[in-house]
Nucleic acid binder design. Structure first.
Lengths: 221, 221
DNA sequence: GTTTTTTATAAAAAATTATTGACAAAACTT
DNA sequence: AAGTTTTGTCAATAATTTTTTATAAAAAAC
């Protein structure tokens, strides 16, 4: 279990790190949001403990940035206990929230709870539904409002890839690399054409596929 | 297909019931969690549609209680769409989640998707029938509309493997690996040829074997 | 407000994939 | 050992999918 601890107070980082390691995990540290984002680009953490008030880049902004390219569970740490912060935090995809002062034990319990939840979620991922769009990756079926959608192989693969990387910005290059394979030497516009077909097959749920101008696409739910 | 619909609003129960019966199922109703638990003790339902906010006993508590003595697939219906609720729902063994307002068609698609997968679990049966196709895995007999079908050994093996993995997308490689064995170094087209023979022997029930272009085959019922 | 860049769409061309039948090889039967 | 059945290979064909290309539309930049 790799935990990234982001806080500008070294003492707090130290205490949390000690507890994480006591439970058999590995702790990584960042002193501010900027550092946290950088570390997340380079590493795959299982969970992030993120303070809110920090120099250079605050916790909320850092989480927002990280969520653009990776889907990692986040627990916010904060001195402020206002309800407003809490809600705002949940809105950007935060999984839990702890207000300072906290007991390290409490934080550990929450880490375990969040991870367990995420894990259980992954295992149940046979059938996923977003509004009226049902995607069965094992049976290779996609339903649009109960009606079966007939997709071509590439369309299935793109959609499944989108779902597995939902809410993450994907460049055409990344899509080509991961869906087509490293040995594809075709045009970038190929992606566009397949996106067009997929959108038309998803009918009204084409809205989930958003165009990121100058970048690529994102499956946003 | 026996479906238990649990919701305190009679109108919602009515609409869902109508759709379930339209698709050939039987719908049972409960107005709150208490009733639902009671009905589950007395009957064997195939799936439960459970509202969350209800008088007397809420949906989550009801599911928790029911899961203590019976393992039935559950789809939650809820007016609240907060992510937190969703996760909490999955933690107690909920199979899917629909937020109100929903279209009944959408709910039916999810019921079908969940049941197909769950149905695959009662694979320990030795004799199984799909419409007019009866497969006796112990006696090594296959009947097409009562008529005994003479299959070759490989054809039996493929069919049995299909049945044991029904509604699951299977690649040719997986079929070769599991039916032929890891030490088979032949052509991919070999699978196609045997599928051809099996299909022709299954007569009209060849429809159960669907081709997944670019992937392989699936036995879909 | 015009130009440039980027994306969407449609249709044609190219490439891929599944189906099928014919046949050879292997494995049983008698 | 010859005959029979089963299994695996291959290639032609048919069907479908993917990619390219051309053009239109939209967004961003100037």
């Amino acid at each position: 279990m790799k935990v990234l601890i982001v806080d500008d107070e070294e003492m707090i980082r130290g205490v949390l790190k000690e507890y994480v390691e006591f439970e058999g995990g590995t702790a990584y540290e960042a002193g501010d949001g900027m550092e946290a984002v950088k570390l997340c680009r380079e590493n795959d953490f299982d969970i992030i403990l993120m303070d809110i008030m920090m120099p250079r880049l605050d916790g909320f902004s850092a989480v927002k940035e990280i969520k653009k390219f990776k889907d990692i569970p986040v627990i916010m740490l904060s001195a402020r206990s206002e309800e407003y912060d809490k809600l705002f935090g949940f809105e950007i995809g935060v999984d839990d929230y702890v207000t300072k002062p906290f007991s390290p034990k409490e934080v550990m319990a929450r880490i375990n709870a969040v991870l367990k939840r995420k894990h259980g979620e992954d295992n149940n991922k046979d059938v996923i539904t977003f509004e009226g769009l049902t995607i069965d990756m094992v049976g290779r079926n996609v339903y649009v409002d109960g009606e079966k959608a007939e997709l071509t192989p590439k369309e299935y693969e793109i959609l499944f890839y989108f779902v597995k990387n939902k809410n993450i910005a994907l460049t055409r290059e990344k899509l080509l690399m991961d869906v087509w394979g490293f040995d594809f030497y075709g045009d970038d516009r190929t992606v566009d054409t397949h996106i067009k077909m997929l959108r038309s097959n998803l009918k009204q749920y084409r809205k989930f596929i958003v165009t990121l101008r100058g970048l690529g696409y994102k499956f946003e739910v």
